[in-house]
């Protein structure tokens, strides 16, 4: 399978994603510069973590206007799987590809630690190999991951089952103390209504090898690999 990892100025998890996908999972990966106007025919797109444009103005606010984002938007509109990790999630929110916004973490601290996530939906291209209720141990590293959505948006997210991951205790029980950044309803990751765009603050690409302390992140990428062949409409759009 062919992945495009978009590189913005200030991205710093692009090589983590490259390593996980190419070296660990043996896939073909292109690093695509944000000024490119062509994604080079991927089957899936990754917007990596980091600090695009130095987080100036707001996290992801400038990156959303990068030329490559038009192609990402088209790829997503045609049903192609897009995964935004950490800063990539912030970019997807700013671009309006996912609903809601990010605030500073509740306690204003940059938090870098392993957290537990409960899988809330397994009918997405990113969780089809996981089970609902399964708990993943995956690291986070962010200062602005305090997810916010207004009550109307929250009920839409619930109604369409767009909430994919929540911060929980290790046994999967809801626990506000484990909602480390203060996110509304402990939301760690959501997908689009069409389910093919995922944004999450935790870093699954940093949890793909025993050597780094967890392999729980692999299920996200293995789910994408297990996804059915890319629809013809996507192939035409790219």
């Amino acid at each position: 399978m062919r992945f495009a990892v978009v590189v913005f100025p200030g991205s710093n998890c692009d090589h983590d994603a490259y390593h996980a996908l190419a070296d660990v999972l043996g896939q073909q990966v292109d690093l695509v510069w944000h000024k490119a106007t062509d994604l080079r025919g991927p089957d899936a797109v990754v917007l990596p973590g980091g600090f695009s444009y130095g987080d100036y103005l707001r996290c992801g606010a400038i990156a959303r206007f990068s030329p490559i984002m038009d192609r990402v938007r088209e790829f997503a509109a045609a049903g192609g799987p897009v995964i935004g990790i950490c800063n990539g999630f912030q970019v997807l929110l700013e671009a309006g590809l996912l609903p809601g916004g990010m605030r500073r973490n509740r306690d204003l601290k940059f938090i870098c630690e392993h957290v537990h996530l409960r899988v809330e939906a397994s009918d997405t291209p990113f969780t089809r190999r996981a089970a609902v209720g399964q708990v993943l141990r995956i690291p986070i590293a962010h200062g602005e991951g305090n997810y916010y959505a207004d009550p109307g948006t929250l009920s839409e997210l619930a109604e369409n089952r767009q909430i994919v991951f929540r911060y929980t205790a290790p046994d999967g029980a809801a626990d506000e103390r484990r909602n480390v950044n203060g996110s509304t309803q402990a939301i760690a990751g959501i997908c689009s209504r069409e389910r093919n765009v995922l944004g999450l603050m935790p870093h699954p690409e940093r949890a793909c090898e025993v050597a780094v302390g967890s392999t729980d992140g692999r299920v996200v990428f293995e789910s994408v690999l297990a996804a059915a062949a890319v629809p013809a409409s996507v192939a035409e759009a790219i």
Binding site: L57, R58, A61, F65, L93, E94, G100, Y148, D150
Partner: peptide, 8 residues
Amino acid sequence: RLLANPVI
């Protein structure tokens, strides 16, 4: 369009 994020 840019300076504010109307969501928040």
